[in-house]
Every structure is written in C-alpha cells, then in structure tokens.
Design a protein around this nucleic acid. Sequence first.
DNA 1: GTGAAAGCGCTAACAT
DNA 2: ATGTTAGCGCTTTCAC
Lengths: 336, 336
Amino acid sequence: MTIKDIAKACGVSVSTVSRVLNERPDVSEAVRRQVLDVVERHNYIPNTSARDLVRSQSDNLGVVVRGTGTPFFSDMLKTVTKEIDAAGYNMVLRQIGSDDDEVKAGAILEREKKLRGLLFLGGRYDYTPAELALVGVPYVCCSYTNQFGSLKKEDFASVSIDDHATAYRAVTTLIEHGHRRIAALVPSCSDHSISQLRCNGYIQALEDHGIAVDDALIVESGGFDMERAYKATCALLDSGTDFTAIFAVSDVMAIAAIKALADRGRCVPEDCSIIGIDGIELSKYSLPTLTTMVQPVEQMARESVHILVELLRREGAPRHILLDTTLREGGSIRQL
Amino acid sequence: MTIKDIAKACGVSVSTVSRVLNERPDVSEAVRRQVLDVVERHNYIPNTSARDLVRSQSDNLGVVVRGTGTPFFSDMLKTVTKEIDAAGYNMVLRQIGSDDDEVKAGAILEREKKLRGLLFLGGRYDYTPAELALVGVPYVCCSYTNQFGSLKKEDFASVSIDDHATAYRAVTTLIEHGHRRIAALVPSCSDHSISQLRCNGYIQALEDHGIAVDDALIVESGGFDMERAYKATCALLDSGTDFTAIFAVSDVMAIAAIKALADRGRCVPEDCSIIGIDGIELSKYSLPTLTTMVQPVEQMARESVHILVELLRREGAPRHILLDTTLREGGSIRQL
DNA sequence: GTGAAAGCGCTAACAT
DNA sequence: ATGTTAGCGCTTTCAC
C-alpha cells in the first residue's frame, strides 16, 4: 500500500494525496474527505523512510540516551519530552547501551532524521574536536560536560552539576555528622567519567578535613549496577576494614549497599550511615529513605532544551550551565 | 556527504562504494581499502532512510515496548536483545508510552523498517481482528494475550503467564500463612488489563478459601507507578480498615506499599505481610527482600523470539505459551 | 485546486 | 571486479 495506490483508488494524483496527508490548505474539501476516507479504509500508513529521505528540513530534535533503563535518565526523559513538545519541536529518541558511542549514534540519527539539533543525555567526558566533527547540528550535553576532553568552551553547550563539588558536599555531610571512617563505593576511580570526578570529590573532602585517605576504603565495583555494588559492599565488609559510613556515587548503588549491609546484620543508619547522589524517585521509597544529593532533574531537562532551542534560533552562543544540587535529608545518616 | 561524493572522491562508481559498505566479497582489496579510507576521512555515514527505503528485504525484527522505564520490561529487553542477535536478526526497538497504541506503533515501524516480524512487549488485552489488519507480518505478544478481545487463537501467537492463576497463588500463599484480612493493591479492577485479571485471581482465591470479599480492602490506585501505589496504601491505612496482609499486583507497587506502611509505623512483615508479582531485580534489594511471584523473564523473552523466528520460517502455526511463575520467598510474609 | 515530473540517497539487477 | 541504471515511496517545484 503506497501513496500511488491511494491516488489510484481516489482517481486523483499522488501530489493531491500528499497534500491531504500533509494538511495543506490548497485542496478542495470534497477531495480531502474522499482521500481521508480511502486512507482510513485501507489502513494506509505513509512510509517514514521515504518521507524522511525527501523532506528538506524537519523540526526534529534528536535525544540520545546513554544507558537503557537507568532510573535517573528515565526520570529526566519525562521532562525533556514535555519541553521539546512545548517548544514546538518533534522528539526523536534513541536509546543506546552504556558502552556505545553516543557521538556516533547522534551523527547517524542526525542524517537519518534530518535533525535540527541534538541532546545528549549522558555521555563521555573526553570528546576531541575531531570526534565532534561528525556532528553537524547544534547540540547540548546534558548531565555531563567535557571535563577530560579538549573541546573549547565555545564549541559546545552543556548543562550539568558540579560532580566534584557534589561529592565533596556529600562526604562533608557525613564528616559533619561525626564520621571519619568513610568508605567510597564507586564504579571506578580512573575511567574519565562521572565516577572519577565524584571519587576525586570524596578524596578532596577527606583531605580538607584532615582525614587520611585509606585505599582500603575505596571500593571499585566496576559498574553502576546494583549487583556489582552489592558484591563490592560485601567484599568491603568481608575485608574486615572498619568504617562507619558509606558514600555511594549513585542512589541505585546506595540502595544495593544498604541491602548488603542488612544481609550482614548491619542496620542503616544505626550501624552504618550512607549517602547517595542523584535523588531518583526510588530513593524516596527505600528503607530508610535515602539521604542523597538531589540533582535538579527537571531543571536540567528544561535548561537543556532551552539552550538547544536558543542555539537553533541563533540567539546567543553555546552556554555552560552548572546547576546546584541540594541535600535531601532522608533517614540514612546517623549523628555519631 | 552522500555515496556519490565518496564515489567521486575515490574515482569509482556508487555501486562499488555500496558494495564495500555492505561488505560484499566481489570487490578488489585495493579498492576496498581506498574506499574505506575515504569514508573514514570524510566521516561519511550512510543515510538510513534511503537504505531502508530501497532494501527489498531486511532481517529486521521490530520490538515495541509499551511503558518507558518499566523495570520489568527493562529486564526482559536484555534477553530479547541477546536472543534476536543470536538468531541472526537485527533488532529495531521502539519505546512507546503506556497509553500509546502499540498496534499502530508496530504497523508504522513495520513499514518504516521493512520488518520481517514484530514482538510486542506489553500491550492491551482486547484487540479486534479489524485492528490487527494493520499488521502485515508475523508477531507475538509477549507478557500478555488476548483475554478480552475477539481474536481467534490461530491468528496470533503469545507468550505469557497465567495472570489469574498467579494472583491466585500469591493470595493463597498469604492465606496459607494464616492471613484472612488481605488487601489488594491494584491499578484498576475493570480496565481490561493485566490488573483486572490479577484482581479477579485475588477475589477467586478468597472465595475458594471461604473468605468474604470486602470491597474496602480492594484499593484501586489508578496506575502502576510508585507514587499512586504509595498514596493508595496510605488511604487504606487511614480508612481504618484492618488487615494483616497486602497483595500487590506488581513488585514496584509492593515496594511503595512497604514504604507507606513503614511511614505509618508498621513493619513488614511483623505488622503486615506483603507479596508482589514480577520478580524484578529491585525486589531482591528491598528491605525486607520481597516475597514475590517471579515471572520467568528470560524464558519469556527466549520463547517469544523463538516463536517469532519459527513463524518467519513457516515452521508451525502460531502458538500460545503459558509459562509458570514461581514463588520466590523473601522476608515479607509472616506466619500468623 | 490539481497534475506531471524531478529528485532525495541508496541498493540491486543487469551489463561489461 | 566494476559500472550503468532503474526504481524504493514520498515531497515539492512548476505548470496548468
């Protein structure tokens, strides 16, 4: 079933059918009704590939989400969807694995859907100018920036939190509650990612408060998932190293850690305090409610879309927004 | 940058470039290397729309996931991805909202990507033959079937659990532990969905065990999300109705209920027992570990893909597989 | 208001 | 082994 078939069935030309389908005004009401009727009866659905191929320009904004099923991005996506819609653009979503290359995925999407702009939800921190030559439309990095790369500030836009400072404040919060033996639960300390930044924040906080960094207290789980966070926490427990609190770089990992502690007979916060980062919905439903550094997810989403739209309208240069995180007190920290 | 530009830059024809790009064997090594080199240097990315438009047949299997960010489907998707890949097909993923029409989304995807087959992860239970005329390729319904619709058995394939029986067993488990005042936490009792089926299983279980159904104990939250489940549980608590256990139709809702109970000073399982359905990863990390009816997610995913592949090879008619759920004991039920 | 025809970028015969 | 060419289904001038 193609546009040709519809045209034939209606006794009109393909261009007329096309006009009807694209809600053009220059079609007589009679023809319009007839075409719509035939389309309906035949369950005709236009071929998007053909359409995309030929359309000169679209109002498509691409959104590339790195990490399928990550609660943090699921939460953010809700607002992004709403904002893009409100701005009068059309969202084209692409989810990729946490190990896939978002720049490449974005570039493919750009050509495929004739994108006007691109929004990256999560990505690497170490782009090089050469890599980004792939991307031919304005784009904004949401939730991360180019900390380890060699991009010039004016060559890209970003909306993120200060990961280092957020981790610093999280750890400082624990210290202020009297904790000095604080473990860090991180995917990695040296992967040029968010994890490394937050790990550095942890180290800095300890040093600034005159606490010696003990390598035995830094556990690298190898990933952001619950299973590995759980195992890493168990390993820490088994190592016999003593500690009174855990700083987890993400809420999901914090929740897994709470479970590991519980399974070994340690209660949070009585026997061990814990703090996370993210402020995902789930953290409100954990037992105890997780104390965490909340990222302003909605604001991040809103600002990202706004900057992108600005860029498209050529109003203003690429901006970099650093948003504040706020401490949301739950019940997972005990005063020593 | 098109295939033409590359051809020109290499001094060869477009077909040669096309051959190289599609890894055809009939190209000389010298030309292949040169083309690849130029492609690389120009960051050329083929236009997928053009490609999809012209390709006569693909090995694309479409997967339509209903409900973005639902943990249950995120878990399932992992296996589906693996299986489709192993079967030598290419997966094309489309995520839609829980209120969108999966049949329409599937039909569009089919035309867009020249699909060979379609896999629906989650969907409505009330298709009519007319609606499905839209879909022109073999498809299988995964995790649901046509309970409330008018499809003939031989006209579609499905892999699902027996929702009624699973709910029945969940509630029976509670009854066997001595509970008689059992509340049901459901999105709706009459929406022609999975929720209704499970609700009926609850009612049946009570009746079969000589327990009168008390409408005050059936709370309809209006959705599968945590927030509404939490509020619904609070409302139940506030109503003063007494109960010793809660049957939640999903793990996510069960976890929200545990929180609501905790916030009102009730411990699980000491003061109230709870059981869920699904067996999502998160249910292993809740406090206490959730007792739940585990859906065989991996098996469901595997069987779904297998049936679809069978259908494509014309080996055998559409089948309907009803998989067993198993009780995974956590710590959320107390013997009375 | 409507139709004819030229492509969009690519693949796949069919030639050579 | 490589080139030529005819479309894939659609939108969009440009005529009428």
